[in-house]
């Protein structure tokens, strides 16, 4: 069995995001980035699957991103992936998850042996559209189960049973393999890469693919166009009401009626 795990470099959730002046994107200079936490679940799942089973030949990690994304690949390699594919070309920079999925699919198709299991995060915390996983499954023509919280793979590796939580119930899905899963929080707890493994990860192979390797890389697929990004409006100033409880309540009702116009 061969497992592929898809990772993306995203801004650290604690970082302060600054929108570019022209609204075309966000400022990346000085921005702290990390491996998407949902994608890390995928890497952990892949590594744990290999640890549990004797039939996993290879765990490969793939990332679409610029030079700085190599740190994310190294983290995944230090967690236990065997080798990496870095899809890196200025032509592939986009804010369109469908296009990202298409580029990833073309890169994956170049691997002759193919993959039995492909895992992605449920969504990425940057653009938050959750489109990469399902779109990638579509481009690769494999079944997809989203937001997986429980997983059993058949002993012969031909099928899997995935559990996912839906409104008020749990859904159990059986699916033939190869298949693509997107992973929800709670299925696995990602490990910290140990410091010696971080050093060893440097020696693991990283294959770089550019637009020269991916046919018709200029082809634009149907998808979304990012029109603009703008920061959320500043929070209006908080008004503190002071006085005795009765006075405060009276004042609050008055403001709700006259200023906020909600009662």
């Amino acid at each position: 069995m061969r497992i592929l795990t898809v990772v993306k470099q995203v801004p650290d959730s604690n970082a302060t995001i600054k929108v570019k002046g022209d609204g075309s994107g966000i400022e990346t200079a000085g921005l702290k980035t990390v491996c998407d936490p949902f994608d890390e679940f995928g890497v952990e799942l892949a590594v744990q699957t290999r640890e549990k089973r004797s039939d996993v030949d290879e765990v490969v990690v793939i990332c679409l991103g610029d030079d700085s994304a190599s740190g994310v690949l190294r983290t995944a390699l230090a967690m236990g992936a065997d080798r990496a594919i870095h899809v890196n070309d200025p032509k592939f920079e986009s804010m369109n998850e469908l296009f990202d999925a298409w580029v990833l699919a073309e890169a994956i198709k170049k691997d002759e042996k193919g993959f039995d299991l492909i895992v992605c995060g449920k969504h990425n915390i940057d653009l938050d559209s959750g489109a990469v996983g399902p779109a990638l499954a579509e481009f690769l023509n494999v079944p997809h189960v989203g937001a997986v919280q429980g997983l059993e793979i058949a002993d012969d590796g031909s099928s899997l049973t995935a559990r996912r939580r839906i409104e008020g119930a749990e859904e159990v899905v059986e699916c033939s393999m190869p298949a693509l899963l997107t992973i929800e929080k709670g299925l696995v707890e990602p490990r910290y890469p140990s410091l010696p493994n971080l050093m060893k990860a440097k020696k693991k192979p990283v294959e770089v693919l550019t637009s020269a390797d991916i046919s018709d890389a200029d082809a634009s697929t149907a998808g979304t166009d990012l029109v603009s990004i703008s920061p959320p409006p500043p929070r209006p100033e908080c008004k503190m009401i002071e006085g005795e409880p009765e006075e405060m309540a009276r004042e609050l009702v008055k403001l709700l009626r006259e200023e906020a116009k909600v009662v």
């Binding site: 190294r74 983290t75 910290y192 890469p193 410091l195 971080l198 050093m199």
Partner: peptide, 14 residues
């Protein structure tokens, strides 16, 4: 170095 930054980031996260 990149190694040193990764070591710091890993321990910081822990």
């Amino acid at each position: 170095t990149e190694d040193e930054r990764q070591v710091q980031d890993t321990v910081a996260r822990f």
